[in-house]
Amino acid sequence: MARYLAKRIFYLALTLFLIASITFFLMKLMPGTPLNNQAKLSPQQIKVIYEHYGLNKPVWQQYVNYILDAAHGNFGLSFQFSDQPVSYLISSRIGPSMQLGGQAMIVGVILGIFVGSLSAIRKNTWVDGTSTFISILGISIPSFVLAILLQYYLGLKLQLFPIADWGGFSYTVLPTLALAASPFAETSRFVRTEMVDVLGSDYIELARAKGLSRMGIVWHHALRNSLIPLVTVIGPLTAAIMTGSMVVENIFSVPGIGEQFVKSILVNDYPTIMGVTLLYSALLCAMLLLTDLVYGIIDPRIRITGKGE
């Protein structure tokens, strides 16, 4: 176990190092400069600005400095906001993003488990048909379309929730719903397939033969066993929520990482782009590692060994 963990953490570090390097050189390849109106600046001014941001050093030195700083959690200064460190920008904005992402994950997964199992228990009935259709809608309708529709109809027309900005809990409802659609749909499809499998197995047959109630069978035997593989979709769901957050936070003006990322992309704020890229990758890697560990613990049939799969 310890050996496995050490190996995985080594790979995680290697992956992040590769990503940091690739991002760095991609940013160096990018056309355009971070200067807003270069034509109006004198060569001296440009020189001062470049010195300030460390852009005058040779590329390899910038690279070494960047990697060393990044390892210490320092991603340089943002070009966009005068002299704000990227790490501060991230840490001050991570709260709303985490809250929205977490809420969306919880809401989506719980609703998905409910709808998915209902669909499996009432398989091939109108209940199944309706839930399958709803989850297809959840997968198919892009998050930005859903977000705009929610904002307009629930926010503006019905005045149920604030349409934008960031205040209390009520401000989080609409963005959470928009973000939760994709985890909900994925979970419900996944749970349905697993549950149908489990419900057809011998031990369910045995439980029925023993005379257990229908609810008892579903609750004690079917649900638990069909939820174990659900752990494996946590990684993809995290990635889906990240993708969604970039547009949903923008639409609802949530001061989060996703909104900042899109803004930085549009104004060539390289240090911020690189910092957020690393953050997103680290988060996904950590989630994937967590998935494998948790899966090994809750399902004893999966053995974690030091060897590759």
């Binding site: 790979y11 290697l14 992956t15 590769l18 990503i19 690739i22 991002t23 991609l26 940013m27 390849l29 990018m30 056309p31 990635a239 990240m242 993708t243 970039m246 990322f261 992309i265 060539n268 782009i273 890229t277 997103y280 990758s281 996904l284 890697c285 994937l288 590759g308």
Partner: peptide, 24 residues
Amino acid sequence: QRIIEVISSVPNIVIMVLLMLVLK
């Protein structure tokens, strides 16, 4: 397989955004 593992542990939207920035 290691290469695939590395590529798929980066959120795909991040790769796309970076490539789009470079390629325009």
